[in-house]
């Protein structure tokens, strides 16, 4: 039971820290990366990187929003990836 309480405490602290951090502006790392780079780094974590030609601009808007939720992307990352895909398709 003690072990469980410790686990719960650790997760709660991390949760609080993340929520507080989430209110801050975007990280310098994201700001310094281009959409193509973020596309290459994030998509391939689970599946092959999608060809920009797969969808139209409108379809990419929906697909990237879906992936923003699914892959826990930040808003800045999602916007940059969508811009890249729409430019390159």
């Amino acid at each position: 039971m003690k072990k469980l309480q410790i686990i719960a405490l650790i997760f709660s602290i991390l949760f609080a820290i993340i929520i507080v951090q989430s209110c801050k502006s975007t990280s310098n790392i994201t700001e310094s990366k281009f959409g193509a780079q973020l596309w290459g780094e994030n998509c391939i974590r689970c599946h092959n990187t999608p060809s920009p030609e797969t969808f139209s601009d409108t379809e990419w808007d929906v697909a990237v929003m879906h992936m923003r939720v699914r892959a826990n992307l930040t808003e800045s990352e999602a916007v940059k990836i969508a811009d890249f895909l729409k430019t390159a398709n």
């Binding site: 993340i18 989430s22 975007t26 826990n72 990352e77």
Partner: peptide, 16 residues
């Protein structure tokens, strides 16, 4: 509740 964030320059994602 889920999302992605940064702790300094450390990227994290979370789900509760």
């Amino acid at each position: 509740i889920r999302g992605g964030s940064y702790l300094g320059n450390l990227k994290v994602n979370y789900s509760f």
